[in-house]
């Protein structure tokens, strides 16, 4: 970005708007409203907003990185730009592994439905199932953390 505003410096300082009250007032009243109820019809958005953040690869990547696996897979179906970022293998693998603290995922899934969830059924353990073993006890045994639903 240009950092030296030489042109602007030449101009006489115009009266300062010290955060304009007409802009902050809606925010303040919004905060008051928000604590009471989040009215869906109340909007402070500028009309000309065009979601430019989602066109900025950097920002979009930061958002997609935080998505859970299934949401990330959906994001990959939205449009070309989203697909190019969300189908990035590294990102998918990270989303897949994050609840399980896995070290790596080997091979490529044969179908997109692989990314639908990352439940325990997706894993093959070299484990002899003994009487009394449950999914939860296996998870504990293999130090798998995250939500375990039986």
């Amino acid at each position: 970005m240009g950092c030296c505003g030489d042109v602007d410096d030449e101009a006489p300082p115009s009266p300062l708007v010290s955060p304009p009250s007409d802009l902050l007032e809606p925010l303040n009243s919004l905060r008051r409203q928000a604590s009471l109820s989040s009215g869906p019809d109340f909007t402070i958005s500028p009309i000309n907003s065009n979601f430019s953040a989602l066109l900025c690869k950097d920002t979009l990547r930061s958002i997609l990185e935080k998505l859970a696996l299934a949401d990330l897979a959906r994001a990959a179906c939205v449009c070309r730009l989203w697909r190019s970022l969300a189908s990035d293998r590294e990102m998918q693998i990270r989303a897949f592994m994050s609840p399980w603290k896995l070290r790596d995922v080997i091979g490529n899934p044969s179908s997109g439905s692989f990314w639908r969830d990352n439940s325990l059924s997706k894993f093959a353990f070299p484990h002899r199932v003994c009487r009394g073993d449950s999914i939860a006890s296996l998870a504990v045994k293999y130090s798998v953390s995250g939500e375990v639903t039986c």
Partner: peptide, 27 residues
């Protein structure tokens, strides 16, 4: 409270600004 009242398009604008101005917590 600051974020809870924002519509999704406002959130996107603020995200972009947070990234551009490098305000990690906000972003």
């Amino acid at each position: 409270e600051f974020l809870s009242g924002m519509e999704v398009d406002v959130l996107c604008d603020v995200a972009l600004a947070g990234n551009y101005l490098d305000i990690r917590g906000l972003f």
